[in-house]
């Protein structure tokens, strides 16, 4: 399988600030790759390094085997969907979409036809004559997508494109983006701080923290076998357990990660398991989150709807399957 984008020891420092620090990365051709991390973790800078808006201070970037350093954005076969969409306010929708073809000197009739075709693909046929100001947020997002796709890029970069949309629209766009990516076979690199979005859409996820990648893997790997305490906590708010706790209940030594939904709560305080006290509960709709205190260790459990809910302050026992407790290697 060809490598679409490859970083080797890439750094981007701004003075003392290490926005991206010695990152190694391989994005495979045709995959949906998510860069996940909190704000300031270096994911957007990495995206901008691929787009060419930033140049690395050290390291080497290749896009489809070609060196990318020093190549300006307009000579890269890579297009971007911007977080604020960046639609040209003085152009109508069809001219926005056809912009990439216009600057390449494609004839007017031909680029209009191509633009209409892409607009139909993003489900906005017949919107060509409107101005960006006349569109809703979701429609602008589709125009931005169409504009980036019209050049048939080899890699499409998406910078938190769904951040400004409401929940319902976001879920719908997630489905559509995924379908579009399968249909076109273009490599998508998707930046997000929303772990749910990354897990549900991506083929592989890179988790960023403080300018470095802490783990790369499939959503299942990231979720079930987090490589570090940071990943365990950031992706799905896992319970991070100290080595002593893990040794007592599991026999192995090392930091552990236990998913809240793997925990069962038993009212019989004398039974086998981890004794704990209920601190609070919050109703989530499909489930209820219970916050517990196990001898000074704070533990979150998620109970499905219909399960018996313990009272606040009640002494309970927590049980879980051994396999669901993931012991993280190294320092963690």
């Amino acid at each position: 399988m060809t490598t679409a984008v490859s970083f080797s020891q890439v750094s981007r420092h701004y003075g003392a600030v290490k926005a991206v620090d010695r990152v190694d990365l391989d994005v495979r051709e045709g995959e949906f790759f998510a860069m996940l991390g909190p704000s300031g973790s270096g994911k957007t800078t990495s995206l901008r390094l691929i787009a060419g808006f930033e140049q690395p201070t050290a390291g080497h970037i290749e896009i489809f085997g070609e060196t990318a350093e020093g190549v300006p954005p307009y000579r890269r076969n890579v297009n971007t969907v911007f977080q604020d969409y960046a639609l040209f306010p003085h152009l109508n929708v069809v001219d926005n979409v056809a912009y990439g073809l216009m600057v390449r000197g494609v004839a007017k009739a031909e680029r209009r036809r191509a633009a209409e075709e892409v607009l139909a693909m993003v489900k906005l046929p017949g919107y060509g004559d409107r101005r960006p100001g006349q569109l809703s947020g979701g429609q602008r997002q589709r125009v931005a997508l169409a504009r980036a796709l019209v050049n048939r890029p080899k890699v499409l970069l998406l910078d938190e494109p769904l951040g400004a949309l409401d929940l319902k629209l976001r879920e719908q766009m997630q489905e559509e983006l995924k379908a579009l990516q399968r249909q076109l076979g273009i490599t998508f690199v998707f930046v997000t701080h929303d772990q749910g979005e990354a897990l549900s859409m991506a083929d592989r996820v890179a988790v960023f923290s403080e300018g470095r990648i802490t783990q790369v893997g499939t959503p299942q790997e990231i979720y079930q076998r987090p490589a570090s305490r940071f990943v365990a906590d950031f992706v799905g708010s896992s319970n991070v357990l100290p080595p002593d706790f893990v040794q007592r209940y599991c026999g192995q030594r090392g930091w552990g990660s236990l998913r809240p939904e793997s925990i069962r709560i038993q009212a019989d305080a004398s039974g086998d398991g981890v004794p704990a006290r209920v601190l609070s509960k919050s109703y989530l709709g499909a489930a209820t989150r219970v916050v517990l205190d196990a001898d000074g260790l704070r533990i979150n459990a998620i109970l499905p709807a219909g399960a018996r809910l313990p009272d606040d302050g009640e002494a309970v026992v927590l049980t879980f399957n051994r396999e669901t407790l993931h012991v993280m290697g190294g320092e963690g």
Partner: peptide
């Protein structure tokens, strides 16, 4: 004027002169 308009133009293949002229 949003700064990303200029980046968007460059990203879509316009060089500096074209970006100035069209955006």
């Amino acid at each position: 004027t949003s700064a990303s308009l200029i980046e968007a133009s460059m990203d879509l293949g316009a060089d500096g002169f074209q970006t100035f002229r069209y955006v």
